[in-house]
Write a protein that binds this DNA or RNA. Structure first.
Lengths: 127, 127
DNA sequence: ACGTGTGACTTGCATAAAGCAAGTAACGTG
DNA sequence: CACGTTACTTGCTTTATGCAAGTCACACGT
């Protein structure tokens, strides 16, 4: 992230033309889909994401927000100018990740021990 | 991976009790779900995974196969004893990832340019 | 019996990403 | 005008990724 970094409708290196591989090129890491989850729950501000129970490191959050914006999954809009503050929200492309999050959550509920069902989240992912 | 490593019904560190976070603790990286994809397509042997178009490094493949087995998503069974060779197949827990792969593939088809629809894979994920 | 080949890994090392702590900038509030 | 808040950056250490090469067990041809 040398200079502006908040530019370029970005596509990073793509490993193959397989749809699963392409999705994972963008979403396949420990944090990206967790930020998406928070957006589905209605969070919009940097500090809100940072405060989540998983404790995402601040530099990684900043990096992922830039990437997600470059990829067109979220948009960043000022909600006040003074001091300048921005709200992050899902674009249609980002909102369409709902089935992915829903499937991941459903799988964990069925197969992983000691996961906590979150009614609010479940509702947001069902909608 | 110091000694045996193919033991322990493993659970690694869990960041929170959120179902999405728990899934991503296990599946949230660039390769794990790609191996799952290959398994859904019917591949079973080490060399077959290695030969995929994405070119997974051999040490990472070995590591992920151990993790997936420890997590109970796949099982490793000898299909001949001489030389000893093993086949990797999905357990029910692993097969239940189908909606996750399906959602990822569907999202990429709808939103990413130049992805190649794979009829064989689509059929396996629909089934 | 002996060299060649193949499948399934392991090991060593370089590079890249993740994670932590601390720092900065712009403002609002007492 | 010192102090707290929000939203980030920067620097540095640790962990993970990726590449190349090596190993091991056996099958096969000669």
């Amino acid at each position: 992230m040398t200079k502006s970094s908040r530019s370029r409708a970005g596509s990073v290196a793509r490993r193959s033309s397989c749809p699963v591989a392409c999705s994972l090129d963008l979403l396949g890491d420990r944090w990206t889909l967790l930020i998406a989850r928070d957006l589905f729950r209605g969070l919009t501000r940097y500090g809100e994401f940072l405060a989540g129970p998983e404790g995402i490191p601040t530099n990684i959050l900043a990096d992922r927000l830039v990437r997600l914006e470059q990829a067109g999954l979220i948009k960043r809009e000022p909600y006040q100018s003074n001091p300048p503050r921005h709200a992050y929200t899902l674009t249609p492309k980002g909102s369409d990740l709902k089935p992915v999050l829903g499937a991941l959550a459903g799988w964990a509920m069925r197969h992983m021990p000691r996961v906590q069902a979150d009614k609010e989240l479940a509702a947001a992912l069902r909608s």
